[in-house]
Amino acid sequence: MSEYAIQTTNLTKYYGKARGIEQVSLTVPQGDFFGFIGPNGAGKSTTIRTLLGLIRPTGGEAKLFGLDIRSDRERILSRAGYLPSETAFYPGMRVRDVLKLSAGLRGIDCAVTARLLCERLQLDPDRKVDELSLGNKKKTAIVCALQHEPELLILDEPTSGLDPLMQREFFDILQQYHAKGTTVFLSSHILSEIQHHCSHAAMIRDGRIIAAGSVAELSRTGARRISIRGQMDYGALGGVKDLRISPDGADFLYSGDMQALLAVMAGGTIRDVSITEPDLEEVFLHYYDSQQRTGKGGEAK
């Protein structure tokens, strides 16, 4: 048995000539709560759909539980649960029928778990799926992904359409599954979600992985968020990003020499200063930003 729930090596997918993903290499250990971050169109869904065998990779390899996605698709899918970003169900069916169909296609009966999940998510199983709101459709899809208690959960933008209370309930459920040993692979463009729940993460942009590691590590880049009240000569400093000057002071990301910063600050009139570690969102924007600058030669914001 493999120690990795997901392991890809140079996984590549082209749609004709259009880029899907390029050289994606990921390792997700069993039992991990893994975040997959990237802006829309970066290749998150393409990666997931390749892992699930919906599309065939152009190159590279991918294994789930040590099983090859090309040759062991059904064995992989029997151990995985998938929550798609956009949910569509067969017309005319009730929530209960959809859940039963999903269980039936897996050849198992999970009515008890399904009922519990429906209760927790406040989803009425007697409603017709055609009449459900976006949020309730999402809940139906969540129960489909969770009711057979899979070893691996692959979630593509799971919280879109859920109100904040439901989002909390959903993450509570995920944490419970995780505590019982389920590996969670969470794809999202909402960084706070990843930072709150995941222990490891990878960032994808333009089809390529641009960073991967523990969430703590990814947040720790050496850069600091500096907030100043007072005046100083910002022009004398290198390594300043995201500079926002207000009449009262300034706020910026700093990745230059700390001694130089202190020297410039000593030359100004500073009433107050705070130096904090930037959150993942800022780090991500920082990566995003630098890539955009080298790519397009435009100015940073």
Binding site: L54, I76, L77, P84
Partner: peptide
Amino acid sequence: TAEFLLTHPI
């Protein structure tokens, strides 16, 4: 609905 159907172990 293909996404629903084909992500089941069949």
